[in-house]
Structures are given as C-alpha cells and as structure tokens.
Design a protein around this nucleic acid. Sequence first.
DNA 1: AATCTTCCATATCGATCGATACGAAACCTA
DNA 2: TAGGTTTCGTATCGATCGATATGGAAGATT
Lengths: 189, 189
Amino acid sequence: MHLFWEHGYEATSLAMLREAMGLTPPQIYNAFTDKETLFRKALTRYHETEIGFALEALSAPVPTREAIRRLLLGAAEAYSRPGKPGGCLFVSGALAASPQAQAIADELKAYRKASEAAIAQRLAKGRAMGDLPEGPSVEGFAKYIAGVMNGMSIQARDGASAEELRIMAQTALAALPAEGQNRGASSKE
Amino acid sequence: MHLFWEHGYEATSLAMLREAMGLTPPQIYNAFTDKETLFRKALTRYHETEIGFALEALSAPVPTREAIRRLLLGAAEAYSRPGKPGGCLFVSGALAASPQAQAIADELKAYRKASEAAIAQRLAKGRAMGDLPEGPSVEGFAKYIAGVMNGMSIQARDGASAEELRIMAQTALAALPAEGQNRGASSKE
DNA sequence: AATCTTCCATATCGATCGATACGAAACCTA
DNA sequence: TAGGTTTCGTATCGATCGATATGGAAGATT
C-alpha cells in the first residue's frame, strides 16, 4: 500500500512489491491474482485504515461548519503523517495513466467523486437544518471542499508540513459562512 | 504536449508520440535528443502558451484581491478549455513517478513551487501596500491559493466544467478578506 | 551516365514490464 | 524407509519500453 501510495499504480513495479513484501512472484500471484487486484486490495485497506477521519468528521453530531473543520484538519494530519507517503492515495494512485490503466484511473476517480458526494450529503443535511445559510449551492461547496482536500494532497506531496496544511485548512474554512452569520450579499464576486 | 498533459510523462509512450507527430523514431530522436528532453520542451511550450493568465493576473496593476480573483478565474478557464486535456500539466505530468523518473517529478514540483512563490511575492507586495490586511502569513495564503489551484486541476481532470471551476474559484476567494474590510478577529478557528 | 554521398524508414536492439512454467526440496503416506 | 504428492523458488516467458543500427532510395558530383 505504501509503495502504491508513494509511486502510484503504474510506476510501482512487481520487483518493488516483491522486495517490500519479501515474497516471490508466484506467492504474490497466488495471494492476489494479479497486480490490479493487489492494488484494489491496497485501496480497500487504505480506505479502512488511513482515512477514517473523514467519515468521523462527516457523521459527528456537530454543526456543519464544525464538521467541515474536522474534515479539513483531519486531512491536514492524515496527509502528512510521519513515516507515511505524503498526500492521499486516491490522488497519487493514478492522476494520469496510460490507456492500459484507464480502469484503475477511473476507479480512483470514482473514489474521489464518492468523497465529494459524501461531503455534499453532509452539507445538504446542514442546509436543511438551516445550518449553512448562504453562498453557492451545496454541490458547489462540496466541490470546493473536495477540491481543497485534493489540493492539500498535492501540497503535502510537495513537502508541506502538518502545520502548513493546518493553516491551509483553516484558510479554506474561512470561505464558509460562520454559523448564523451572514457573509454579506455579494451575489457575484 | 497534449499527450503528456493527458497521460503524464511516464504513461506516454514513444509509440503514442510517434503516431501523434507523424514522425519516425529516428526523426524524434534527431529533433529532441530523447524522451526527457522532449518532455522538457513540452513543459516550456506549455508554460509559454497555456498559462499566461497567471503572470498577467499577478502583474496587473489592480488591488491584491482582484489580482488573486483574476488568477483563480483564469485557472478555472485554462483548466477546462475545450479540446485540451483537463487540469494543469504541472500537476498531471508526474504527481507520482517511478524512481527512474524522479528527476522529472522533481522538475514539475519545482514548477509548482515557483508558482506558489510568484503568488507569495504578489501577496507580499499587497501586504506591504496595506492591501492584504489580516489573516495568515503571506506564505500561508500563497500555499492556500496554490493549493486551491492544484485542487481545481484535479477537479477539472475529474470532469468539472468551466462554470463549476469558476464557482470553486469564487468560493475560494471568499477566504480572503475583502479590501479595507476586517474579517472579524477569530484568531483561532 | 556512372558513381558516390547523404539521408531516412524499417527492423531490431538490450532492458524491463507483468506473469508463469518447471525442477528441486520438503512432507505426508504406506 | 521408500514412494508419491505437494509446495515453492528460480529461471524464463511474450510484450513493450526507450533508443539505435542498417539497408535502400534519393540527390549531388565527376
């Protein structure tokens, strides 16, 4: 998982995986069928072990803005954990891919879209509760939040520290209207 | 350039380049030395032809916030041009790379860092002129702006429309204090 | 017109990719 | 303990990677 996280799907060779896992090629293929299946296993594991902060933040019984704050700060921490590759596997795994790896790229894109959809769902709940008073549509906000997280992933990969990512998260949060507060009706920037 | 932009450095094979350019392998190597040099030529061309909006926005004689607004909206447009690959070549070119392509990945990272530095320089000028009153440090703001642009690049690659990217840009802009206006001294979010 | 030089596309290079066939070692059964 | 079976690591598979050697056509020179 760490290798795929660090180098992406295609750039991670079986030789690297073999050395890292201490397995011979037949052992790898007996256990994981092929490279693509192995990558999907790594994706599942990543989802289960590394980004629990997201589900926690979005399902916590707190105001919407606080939920988003936890989401962004959780990302800042998760994307810069010592001993782990920087950024998010869903982004690093295969942003650009060869035609042969299109299926993998599409699957990662689906993960990113699912993350955005989860954010949108939480925002919609907030809006229904009068918790997210103004500004763009729920989808627009969700795309912004998801986009900022993707951007944090790249910044992390470029060496940004946890503290720098936290600052970025807090700055991003300032774009969301504070609770019960009106941001001023600048309908068009 | 479009092929590298779409598939990234490593996933773009010489066979694809050969077909796209209508050249035979020796012609390619006579003209560009090797694949790495060809990619660097494409990078230079991209820098000259596709992202002029950035320099324009940052050097325009306008208030700081307006400069950043033009930068973000310019990115929204540049990252979703019809007939062009989505996103930014500096991001798509090689986010994750094999050890053999580390030099290319490092060069792209340098381009991204240079963009962030250019933003920081513009913000520093603004702050010196009293044009960017409050909030995080200039470096923190710059990392946020650059990060948002990187995030927009990924959203564009995931199919976001120009309009959706514009909304994201405007939402991101809301994180910057309006001119001469105080955002309220919430020192710690 | 005959020869020579220049140029260029095809065919192929060694290396590496993901994936597997095969032979040896270990283990269980009789 | 001998035989049969299973397991597992090495050696190698065909395909493709980036890069280049070679044979033949085109044009210049004598």
